[in-house]
Simulated assay, not measured.
Amino acid sequence: MKLKYIFFGIALVSLTSFSNGNLDTKYSKATRISNTIFQTSGGEKLIATSDCVGCHKLDKKLIGPSYLDIAKKYAATEKNINYLSGKIIKGGAGVWGTIPMAAHASLKKVDAKTMATYILSLKK
């Protein structure tokens, strides 16, 4: 049984070591689609490199609400950015259902604010 865990650990480390480069260069490039340039924001980059993608998607509800639903619910004000960044760091439950959002206590406040600002910028 221990041998299985050791083998799994070695396989996991081996697979993750084959990364193709620096995330900063991967997400800092602009993308051109039919003469329109889209620049990846800092908040989008932080979300893509965190565990947020396990529970949230841009346009579909997974475990938690979609980012577009969050943007529809909250106006892009400093008060809401502070509220949402606090929710990201502390976690919580009850706003979007009974399943609680996990806390991200190791996340810096400035990064959480950047993420919240990006999410609220998605409002159409």
Rank of each mutant, 00 (worst) to 15 (best):
N82D: 14
F8Y: 12
A93C: 04
K73S: 03
K72A: 14
Q39S: 14
F18H: 06
S14A: 14
A105P: 13
G54N: 12
L46E: 13
F7G: 05
S66G: 03
S106T: 13
T40G: 06
Y27A: 03
D24H: 06
A105M: 11
L120G: 03
D69E: 14
M1E: 09
I33D: 15
T31W: 12
A71S: 14
I6D: 07
K72R: 12
L107S: 08
D51I: 12
K29R: 05
L12P: 00
T98R: 06
I70C: 04
G54Y: 13
K73D: 02
A102V: 10
H104W: 13
I70W: 09
S34D: 14
K109C: 01
I88D: 02
G42Y: 09
A116Q: 05
G42N: 14
I88N: 04
R32P: 00
N82T: 07
Y5G: 05
K4T: 10
T16Y: 09
I119V: 05
C52N: 08
M1T: 11
A116V: 04
Y5T: 08
I119P: 01
L46I: 12
D51C: 11
A71Q: 10
K29M: 01
T36V: 08
V13T: 13
G54P: 03
A112R: 03
I6E: 12
K2Q: 09
R32V: 15
F18K: 03
K87G: 05
A105V: 12
I47A: 11
A75W: 01
H56F: 00
T77V: 00
D51V: 15
V95T: 02
R32I: 14
K61Q: 06
T49E: 14
W96K: 02
L62R: 15
A116D: 05
Y118Q: 04
D24Q: 10
K124Y: 06
S41M: 06
K109P: 09
K57C: 07
Y5E: 15
K79D: 04
I37H: 13
